[in-house]
């Protein structure tokens, strides 16, 4: 195609510089998109409050109601909840916000406009990932602050644990964002986006050990939960924030960090494939 362009009717073009003006690259456009996404997100006050406050409220509720010591694990139930809510909070800023956001943008015709722009599709996804990076890290920091201040949460003591925190955060974020992008094609319009995104997420939180600890759930629930990334994100966070004695509460009696990385990594790749194959710019009304 580029070759025919050079031979295309160039005389009388509005751009006397000819093809001289270069189109910005995907990475640069992705950064620009990210900037705009972040700006828009933080200006929608209600959504900001909801996104950040909900996990904190949930964490405060659960961790305050259930605060007994767990026999033989050397931790309190509150600590367990804080670690689990980190996972759920991260998934809400990625999966839920991205899915609802894109479905709304599609319905309002913003995607159609973007598609008409001389922009590679990857720049759009990059922009979303930047938004998730900023909101996800902010969300995590807030939850950590509240956890440390009120619920005996200890910040990671070794560089190794900080490293684990970083990769669980990053892989979880990417996996859930890609899933959110893929899932955004399901809702018919902006109105149906919220229930369609929130309901499965809510179920997933229950079967992934966010509200109810893994060892008190029936086998099939754990099996289904183990298929999705949330369970593994929470497990990764428990490995970072709980003392090693608490391993006994895990399904395998261990943190299984290798498996955590494997499952999250697999979701990153699978999510990417799902995104590329199912993503559509047009809404159903666009035909």
């Amino acid at each position: 195609m580029t070759q025919t362009l050079v031979g295309a009717p160039a005389a009388g073009r509005l751009h006397p510089g000819g093809e001289g003006g270069k189109l910005p690259g995907a990475f640069r456009l992705g950064l620009l998109r990210g900037g705009v996404e972040i700006k828009q997100f933080f200006r929608a006050k209600e959504a900001v409050v909801f996104t950040f406050a909900l996990p904190i409220v949930m964490m405060t509720m659960f961790a305050s109601i259930f605060h007994d010591k767990i026999q033989g694990a050397g931790i309190t139930v509150s600590q367990l909840y804080v670690a689990a809510m980190l996972g759920a909070g991260l998934m809400s800023t990625s999966f839920q916000n991205i899915g609802i956001g894109i479905a709304t943008e599609r319905d309002e015709g913003n995607l159609r406009r973007l598609r008409a722009m001389p922009m590679p599709r990857s720049a759009y996804f990059f922009g979303k990932l930047w938004l998730v990076l900023v909101t996800g890290v902010a969300e995590t920091a807030l939850l950590l602050a509240v956890g440390v201040a009120f619920f005996d949460l200890k910040l990671p003591s070794t560089p190794g644990k900080w490293f684990t925190l970083a990769w669980v955060l990053l892989l979880g974020m990417i996996a859930c964002s890609l899933l959110g992008i893929a899932m955004s094609s399901v809702p018919r319009d902006a109105k149906s986006a919220t229930p369609i995104m929130v309901l499965p997420f809510l179920v997933l939180q229950f079967i992934s050990g966010v509200y109810i600890s893994i060892n008190s759930m029936s086998g099939w629930m754990v099996k289904v939960g183990s298929f999705f990334p949330l369970k593994w994100m929470c497990q990764g966070f428990r490995a970072v924030f709980l003392p090693d004695r608490a391993k006994v509460l895990e399904q395998g009696g261990d943190w299984e960090l290798g498996r955590v990385a494997l499952v999250l990594g697999a979701w990153c790749i699978g999510g990417l494939i799902l995104c590329l194959t199912t993503f559509r710019w047009k809404g159903r009304r666009d035909g």
Binding site: T2, L5, E19, L23, E108, N110, R112
Partner: peptide, 23 residues
């Protein structure tokens, strides 16, 4: 099968479209 370059030569104002957002 339009290229990005081609898209940069085209301007579109759609029917019923309204820019939205907090910008």
């Amino acid at each position: 099968r339009a290229s990005r370059q081609w898209k940069s030569w085209i301007g579109i104002v759609w029917q019923n479209e309204v820019v939205s957002g907090e910008l």
